[in-house]
């Protein structure tokens, strides 16, 4: 197990994350699915030590996150599809600053990803479309040889072609032995490339299992994962 999230709890005035537990394995893609407001971003923030949890623990590489934050962050990569950093700074300046924090920075990989994603380094994030911003974040996250990638809604705002390219990139990373964890509310992304499904509903993990097991356990015959999740979520909504 490359990462283990055990019993994370976090209470806000209008929302509560309850006993969130799941594990991530090397060389696998885990899709973290849930509707808006289900607790995906809160969980991701807990995994990045951006929030203080009321209970539970997060471990990467067998090390507790709180005591080994620096080492763990060198070995993990993060990208968000919803936040843009330094919108008026040139991409080359952002990258030049970021790379100095990582001994593991791979300039060749960075060049490869900027080329693959067609990123013009002389542009600023404000000059990029939403999809290109995601690609910029991803290029930065992928260039320091992260062993696990935590991606918060990386496909949001991407056109179908770019999304397909991105999912293909996930598969390549997986083949290289990295673990990919991405949150999304787009079910087709999960169907296309996830090995594991972690389904969160109303702040609770409703399922965390391999995709095949998920289908066996929850899907009716002939039912797609999308239909299954919509049915489950409908049921949760009617509770």
């Amino acid at each position: 197990m490359i990462a283990e999230i055990k019993g994370i709890c976090k209470k806000y005035p209008s929302f509560e994350l309850k006993d969130v537990s799941f594990g991530l394995e090397k060389g696998r893609i885990a899709g973290f699915i849930g509707r808006n407001g289900a607790g995906k971003t809160t969980t991701v923030k807990a995994m990045l030590n951006l929030i203080h949890t009321d209970g539970g623990s997060v471990e990467f590489f067998g090390l507790p996150l709180k005591e080994n934050e620096k080492e763990i962050k060198i070995r993990t990569g993060y990208s968000s599809g919803t936040v843009s950093w330094y919108p008026r700074k040139k991409i080359k300046d952002i990258a030049d600053t970021v790379k100095r924090f990582y001994d593991t920075w791979d300039e060749e990989a960075y060049r490869r990803y900027t080329q693959l994603f067609e990123l013009d380094e002389n542009k600023t994030p404000t000059e990029l479309s939403e999809g290109m911003k995601v690609k910029l974040n991803l290029a930065l996250a992928l260039s320091h040889k992260a062993e696990i990638l935590i991606l918060d809604e990386p496909t949001s705002g991407l056109d179908p072609f770019s999304r397909n390219e991105l999912l293909e990139t996930f598969r390549e990373l997986k083949n290289d032995g990295a673990a990919v964890f991405f949150s999304t509310h787009i079910i087709s992304d999960i169907e296309k490339c996830a090995d594991d499904i972690i389904y969160i509903s109303k702040g609770r993990i409703a399922a965390a299992t391999a995709k095949e097991d998920f289908i066996k356990k929850y899907s009716a015959e002939g039912e797609s994962i999308e239909d299954t999740l919509l049915r489950l979520e409908g049921g949760a909504g009617n509770e």
Partner: peptide, 8 residues
């Protein structure tokens, strides 16, 4: 937040 994500 950007800084908090760096290994520091």
């Amino acid at each position: 937040v950007f800084s908090a994500l760096l290994p520091i």
